[in-house]
Computed example of a mutant assay.
Amino acid sequence: MLDDDQLATRNAELRGTLDNLMRELKDRTDGLRDAQAAIAAMSGVASSPDGNVVVTVDSTGVLDKLELGPRAFERVTPEQLSQTITQVARRAAQSVREQVNAHMAPLTSEEGVLDLPDIVPGAPSIKDIFKVEQRDEPAPPPPPSDEDFGSSVLRKEARPVQRAVSTDEDEDFGGNSIMGKGNRW
């Protein structure tokens, strides 16, 4: 059994450890807030080898801007162009993910960091709060072909478009045109 002096010493050590842990959490939280602001301003940019496709994504990897050069449609099929755009967009998203991870690395480093399970066995780890997940992008499904639909999804011949024409002019206004009212409303 511990005497009062030993208990007081042990209690002081535990308080010091908890104070250090709280200070570390506060520093990391402040760093996280600053990092979030910096990350929100980041973007990723990638272009095709010929420079005809340039994609810009925001910090979350969402398409922000797509630029197609004047020669983007020359000597390529729509399918080839869409594949190029997809590849360039993925590279732009990967670029911004790398920037985010590099910016977050100091906050996710585990070197010399005291954690709650070190003090209280079975407690959740504070380190997990600051981890940034890296996800793998699945390969896109191949674009549908004419065989998938039984025939071309585009019309092979143009058909005239018929529009419904009302013979009752101003039917909603009892024969009086709203345009003829002038300032009498």
Rank of each mutant, 00 (worst) to 15 (best):
T60N: 09
V153Q: 09
V88T: 15
G61L: 07
P70L: 06
P160C: 01
L7Y: 13
K26W: 05
V54A: 06
G122L: 10
Q83I: 01
E79M: 09
L154G: 01
F149Y: 06
E157I: 10
N101S: 13
G150R: 10
L66I: 08
D136V: 14
P141A: 13
P144F: 11
W185P: 01
R10H: 09
R184F: 08
S59A: 13
R71K: 14
G61T: 05
T56S: 12
T167N: 09
Q99F: 00
S109D: 15
Q94W: 05
R28K: 15
R135G: 08
V45S: 12
S48T: 08
E157Q: 11
L63F: 10
P121A: 13
Q6V: 01
E98H: 13
E98S: 15
E111N: 08
G122F: 10
R33Q: 12
A35V: 00
V120I: 15
I178S: 08
G69C: 07
N176G: 02
K127T: 01
E171Q: 11
V113R: 15
G150H: 09
T60S: 10
G150T: 05
L66F: 06
T60L: 13
A105V: 04
T84W: 02
T9V: 12
L14Y: 12
A35L: 01
P138H: 02
N52I: 01
L154M: 14
M179P: 00
I119F: 05
N101M: 13
E157L: 06
N11I: 03
S82Y: 04
E24Y: 00
R10A: 14
D5I: 09
R75F: 01
F173M: 10
L107P: 05
T9R: 14
N101Y: 07
E169S: 09
V62C: 07
E24L: 12
I39P: 03
P142N: 02
T86V: 08
L63C: 14
L116C: 08
K156V: 03
E79H: 10
P70K: 13
S151K: 11
P106K: 13
P70W: 03
A102I: 02
T77G: 10
G31H: 08
I178K: 08
P142W: 07
D128Y: 00
A93T: 08
P124R: 12
I119Y: 04
R75Q: 12
A93W: 05
P140H: 01
G69T: 05
K181T: 01
T108F: 00
V113M: 07
V53P: 09
D5R: 14
A164P: 02
R163Q: 08
S82E: 15
K26R: 14
M104I: 12
V96D: 02
V53W: 03
S109Q: 04
V54H: 02
Q36Y: 03
D19S: 08
A37H: 06
L25A: 15
G16A: 14
E110T: 15
A46P: 08
G180K: 15
M104P: 05
G51L: 03
A38W: 00
T60I: 00
Q162E: 11
M179A: 14
V62E: 10
A8E: 11
R135Y: 07
Q134D: 10
